[in-house]
């Protein structure tokens, strides 16, 4: 009796991953590799930021935040683009893998965009003299944050996971399509309401060579960090699904036969 159950469980389990341990182990190896690589690069990146990159002549040391802030912000944008694409593919194919990707990417994206806002605020204080200004990119970023927090809320508040996946996919698509419109409307709005605070940034003048190189390295580092986080989050969701699969197989067995 117990044996038959066990084979059934193995079956329920293996539906997620064809050879029960193979892909799981492989993806774990991949994640270990990513985190090691990411860690090493992050240390290198930090040392570049502090010792290699020249101090900005005007802004001083605070300008070094820039090497964190910009890659983080760009990664969050990338994350939401991934959500957009994965949501469309999910709605068309209904393959749970795409939903996992969308969910993981949205969550990591919200973490990144939160950090982009926080680092932005910390940067704004010494440079502009205020914590916050309704500057177009800041405002757009804030709206972005609101949209994707709503995305996560829809998923959490849905009646069941299938519904959550569909609803959040819809929000992921509508929200992303909206972003360019938000961006332009805020820019135009800003351009007719000059604020007393200093406008955007002083360094529109081309970046110095070393600065650009460090920034590029920072980008790659954060890209790896992003991929790692998404992979980690997807692995969690896969475990969740596998646990759910086992539980549901057990429930089927527990139904006494009529």
């Amino acid at each position: 009796m117990a044996e038959t159950r066990q084979t059934e469980l193995a079956h329920a389990d293996s539906r997620e991953s064809v050879t029960p341990l193979g892909p799981v182990r492989r993806s774990r190896d991949l994640r270990v590799y990513l985190v090691v690589l990411g860690g090493v690069m992050m240390l290198a990146d930090l040392s570049f930021i502090f010792w290699v990159a020249p101090t900005d002549s005007i802004l001083g040391d605070i300008q070094r935040v820039f090497y964190f802030h910009v890659p983080i912000a760009v990664m969050s944008f990338l994350a939401f683009f991934v959500v957009f694409v994965a949501s469309i593919v999910y709605l068309v194919t209904r393959s749970p893998a795409w939903d996992r990707l969308a969910q993981a990417s949205a969550e990591v994206g919200v973490v990144f965009v939160t950090l982009a806002l926080i680092t932005g605020v910390i940067w704004a204080r010494p440079i502009w003299g205020v914590w916050w200004t309704w500057e177009p990119r800041l405002t757009t970023t804030l709206i972005l944050w609101l949209i994707y927090v709503a995305y996560l809320m829809v998923r959490a508040y849905a009646a069941n996971p299938n519904q959550g996946a569909r609803y959040s996919a819809v929000v992921g698509i509508v929200g992303f399509v909206d972003v360019p419109i938000v961006y332009y409307s805020v820019i135009w709005w800003r351009s007719i309401h000059p604020s007393p605070v200093v406008g955007p940034l002083a360094q529109a003048n081309a970046l110095e060579g070393t600065m650009a190189a460090v920034l590029l390295f920072s980008f790659i580092t954060f890209l790896i960090l992003f991929v790692f986080l998404v992979a980690q989050r997807m692995a969690l969701r896969e475990t969740e699904d596998r646990l759910g699969g086992i539980k549901s197989a057990m429930r089927r067995r527990a139904e006494s036969v009529f």
């Binding site: 910009v70 200093v198 406008g199 529109a204």
Partner: peptide, 25 residues
């Protein structure tokens, strides 16, 4: 995204010179 250089926005054009003065303070 906030504070990204090298991607000038039309609206920023008019402020660009002013900040340098203020920032030096």
């Amino acid at each position: 995204m906030a504070g990204q250089p090298g991607r000038p926005v039309p609206a920023d054009e008019e402020y660009r010179r002013m900040p340098l003065v203020l920032l030096q303070n």
